[in-house]
């Protein structure tokens, strides 16, 4: 994490809190990471890991009654926490674009795709009406929406799920983002359509030199598109490294268990039991002391149950590779 050339996005000690009956509950706890220009970083986790809230917190979009309780987010060197409402709304949908899992909840049901696109282009790019109309069409063509011209006048419900997700991508990209936060962008899509949308995302990312924070639960999707992977469990980052290394040689027992329990493993055969992780993710208000993963960890020892592990460097081929696990203590170079 060099200081000379600041990364596009730098998150330090980010915590997100929700009020609970017995005081604040931290849904995200002291999360730190960077995203470089043009980099594709996957934020991987199961439900309750805090991955979606982390993505939302980048543009201060944490839903009420949640709030950012600690930490800083710097985007292009600017502290996002210091921005006023005006600058924040310019940032959202502008320099930081968002794509969500279910486009039908994010698209206005009574507005045509064309008018949504024109509004984004005028607001974030300062285009006149005529220019905006022309560019709206070009965006729908760039996301390979079939029948782009007629689609401009279509309401979201007239389109298939795959088409809506393409339209949503066009909306996010039309604002001219440097960072795209894509939260489970293909989870609601059929697998053949998912492959197309991921392929489209990859080619547009390259063309626009766009950084992507891909929030997902699907390790296959991570393998498909990500350069770097951040693994979250119960509100904490537990592992970070080049996606290929993390998937090939996971350093945290949680990542290892997650990978092993995938039924797509090469030796999967009908009737053969899968190596499963026991238990489930603890609720934010019921996290154990020490390492949150300790109760499910096959390798946990006494210290894991009393003390939360810090980061340990993991030897690897390239890039920052680290894991929050006492077992990695001895690995330090």
């Amino acid at each position: 994490m060099g200081d000379a050339d600041p990364p596009l996005l730098s998150v330090r000690g980010l915590s997100v809190a929700f009020p609970g009956p017995a005081g604040d509950v931290l849904a995200v706890e002291e999360v730190s990471f960077d995203v470089g220009r043009g980099e594709v970083v996957a934020l991987v986790g199961e439900s309750g890991s805090g991955k979606t809230l982390t993505g939302l917190a980048l543009a201060r979009l944490v839903p009420e009654p949640g709030r950012i309780a600690a930490g800083t987010v710097r985007f292009e060197g600017v502290d996002v926490g210091s921005l006023g409402e005006r600058d924040l709304s310019r940032l959202r949908g502008g320099a930081i674009g968002y794509v969500f899992q279910e486009p039908s909840t994010a698209l206005d049901p009574v507005r045509t795709i064309g008018s949504e696109l024109v509004a984004v282009l005028r607001r974030h790019r300062g285009l006149g009406r005529r220019e905006a109309r022309a560019e709206a069409l070009s965006w729908l063509r760039r996301v390979a929406l079939p029948g782009a011209e007629e689609r401009l006048r279509d309401l979201p419900h007239r389109m298939s799920g795959g088409m809506r997700q393409r339209a949503m991508l066009a909306l996010a990209l039309a604002g001219g983002p440097r960072l795209l936060v894509a939260d489970e962008p293909t989870t609601a899509l059929d697998v053949t359509i998912q492959a197309q949308v991921l392929g489209l995302l990859a080619s547009l990312r390259e063309e626009l030199d766009l950084a992507v924070l891909l929030v997902t639960h699907d390790l296959g999707v991570v393998r498909e598109v990500a350069g770097r992977a951040l693994v979250m469990y119960a509100g904490h980052l537990v592992e970070e490294g080049p996606a290929e290394d993390v998937l090939a040689a996971p350093a945290h027992p949680y990542t290892r268990g997650l990978l092993a329990s995938l039924p797509s493993g090469e030796d999967a055969a009908p009737g053969r039991r899968l190596p499963a992780l026991e238990g489930s993710v603890p609720e934010p208000d019921a996290r154990p002391p020490g390492c949150s993963f300790a109760p499910r960890c096959p390798d946990a020892f006494a210290r894991c149950r009393t003390e939360a592990p810090g980061w340990y460097a993991v030897p690897g081929a390239s890039g920052t590779r680290r894991a929050a696990c006492f077992l990695r203590e001895g690995d330090a170079p």
Partner: peptide, 24 residues
């Protein structure tokens, strides 16, 4: 096509097959 569309399949044959498949 279903097999080629499995996320993580990046071999040339899978990618080529995905490219031609439009919407159902």
């Amino acid at each position: 096509l279903l097999l080629a569309s499995q996320p993580g399949r990046r071999d040339g044959a899978s990618l080529a097959r995905r490219r031609v498949a439009g919407e159902p």
